[in-house]
Amino acid sequence: MRNKVIFFEVQGGNDKGADGYRKDTMPMVDALKERGMDAEVIFFDKEKEDEIYNYVSTNALAYVSRINPGNLKEEQAYFEMLRRLCQDGVIGMPHPDAMIGYGSKDVLVKLKSTTLVPDDTFAYYNMEDFKHQFPKSLAKGERVLKQNRGSTGEGIWRVTLVNPQEHQQEIPFDAQIKCTEAKDNHVEFWQLGEFIEYCEQYITGDNGMLVDMPFLPRITEGEIRLFMLSEKPVYVVHKKPAETENAFSATLFSGAQYRYDTPDQWSNLVENFLSELPQVMTLLGGYDLPLIWTADFILDTDELGQDRYILGEMNCSCVGFTSHLTLAHNVAEEILSIIKKNKTVTA
């Protein structure tokens, strides 16, 4: 009889506490048990995949994935097991294809038809397209390139022409460019063609890809992260880059300052984003929203001089909330609500 919620983790990684678990996992397990729902943690291991699959498909009402993909060598095997579990009727939080859709950087290209993303945003999956389009993109002004892999700003570059000229349709490969990496705001100077070749490392390999979008100068006012529980905004993190020359990174490592706000302090952003959510869900495959996820925004200005919020990225694979562990109770309530809703639908 299915009567459990299974939390998937993986052994090792720098996101674990002294007990070997993520610091925000056991609080959720305990909060579910307080509410009468059995819950446990299983560490995914490719060697034990069949055993894990059989146990979870037999005993679980739902699973909650708490694995950072960067800590998982057998990502495809893990996702395939999750797909099988969802096909068996286990409620996926999230479904693996929702995890991929909401967590990949090219989500921005998929959402260009919404008000959340600029029209001149591109994704490159091969060097030919990158070499063809990026010199044209750069002719329009400063750009940001984002690799699909990595974290904490690694492989995210602000690219600026050293000597911009008016009316250029395409930047020549020998043009000098200034490149600032979000990881630590360090600056490198390149010829455009050499930098394009350097970026091949981001495009090649499994899940290789680069996103190319306009640089938004108002990033210096801060990046705004919405922390979401399904369709409910819970809190907002305002991440202001360090006030030093060239700084545009909103990571703690780079010296950004974080402030925690309530959603009503950002009511315009929240209302606009929630109004777009139905279309976002449709464009990303029609899956249920992830259980715990974030959406990051940067301020821009529209043609009428009004504030506009541009989506920078979304994350849902393993969003942490170790600074707000009391949220475990909110998460437990949301899990129970999702299970109840699914039981009603399938009844």
Score class of each variant (00 low, 15 high):
residue 93 M to G: 09
residue 146 K to N: 08
residue 65 S to C: 06
residue 105 K to Y: 01
residue 154 E to A: 09
residue 284 L to Y: 06
residue 96 P to N: 05
residue 40 E to D: 06
residue 200 E to I: 04
residue 307 D to W: 10
residue 326 T to R: 15
residue 232 K to Y: 13
residue 294 T to V: 04
residue 89 G to C: 01
residue 278 P to D: 01
residue 105 K to Q: 00
residue 221 E to G: 11
residue 122 F to V: 04
residue 300 D to H: 14
residue 202 Y to N: 02
residue 117 V to E: 02
residue 292 I to T: 08
residue 151 S to N: 10
residue 168 Q to W: 12
residue 158 R to S: 02
residue 248 F to D: 00
residue 278 P to C: 11
residue 150 G to E: 10
residue 27 P to E: 01
residue 36 G to S: 05
residue 263 P to F: 07
residue 181 E to H: 11
residue 150 G to V: 11
residue 176 Q to W: 15
residue 288 D to L: 05
residue 296 D to S: 05
residue 233 P to R: 15
residue 285 G to N: 07
residue 295 A to P: 11
residue 293 W to S: 04
residue 199 C to T: 15
residue 329 H to L: 02
residue 210 L to E: 00
residue 245 E to F: 14
residue 128 E to M: 12
residue 302 D to I: 08
residue 243 E to C: 13
residue 200 E to P: 00
residue 95 H to F: 05
residue 106 D to H: 13
residue 162 V to M: 10
residue 70 G to K: 15
residue 33 K to I: 09
residue 200 E to M: 00
residue 250 A to S: 12
residue 77 A to C: 11
residue 287 Y to G: 04
residue 240 K to Q: 12
residue 115 T to D: 14
residue 279 Q to A: 08
residue 83 R to Q: 08
residue 30 D to N: 12
residue 38 D to V: 03
residue 19 D to M: 01
residue 249 S to H: 11
residue 12 G to A: 06
residue 176 Q to P: 02
residue 65 S to F: 04
residue 30 D to Q: 13
residue 189 F to G: 01
residue 304 L to T: 15
residue 318 C to M: 13
residue 316 C to G: 04
residue 296 D to L: 10
residue 327 L to K: 07
residue 154 E to M: 11
residue 84 R to V: 00
residue 317 S to Y: 11
residue 67 I to N: 12
residue 179 C to W: 14
residue 335 I to G: 05
residue 338 I to W: 00
residue 111 L to A: 00
residue 184 D to F: 07
residue 145 L to S: 00
residue 269 L to T: 06
residue 252 L to G: 03
residue 76 Q to I: 15
residue 235 Y to Q: 01
residue 281 M to G: 05
residue 196 I to R: 08
residue 56 V to H: 12
residue 179 C to T: 13
residue 340 K to T: 13
residue 42 I to C: 07
residue 338 I to Q: 08
residue 323 S to N: 12
residue 253 F to C: 02
residue 10 V to G: 08
residue 68 N to T: 06
residue 57 S to E: 10
residue 277 L to F: 03
residue 217 P to F: 07
residue 289 L to C: 00
residue 269 L to Q: 06
residue 301 T to F: 09
residue 231 E to I: 07
residue 127 M to V: 06
residue 132 H to C: 09
residue 304 L to G: 10
residue 323 S to M: 09
residue 25 T to Q: 03
residue 16 K to L: 03
residue 66 R to G: 00
residue 80 E to A: 12
residue 146 K to W: 14
residue 227 F to M: 06
residue 183 K to W: 12
residue 306 Q to L: 05
residue 142 E to A: 14
residue 173 F to L: 13
residue 342 N to T: 12
residue 262 T to A: 10
residue 248 F to M: 10
residue 9 E to I: 07
residue 4 K to T: 07
residue 105 K to N: 03
residue 220 T to D: 04
residue 178 K to D: 07
residue 124 Y to H: 00
residue 162 V to E: 11
residue 242 A to K: 15
residue 103 G to S: 11
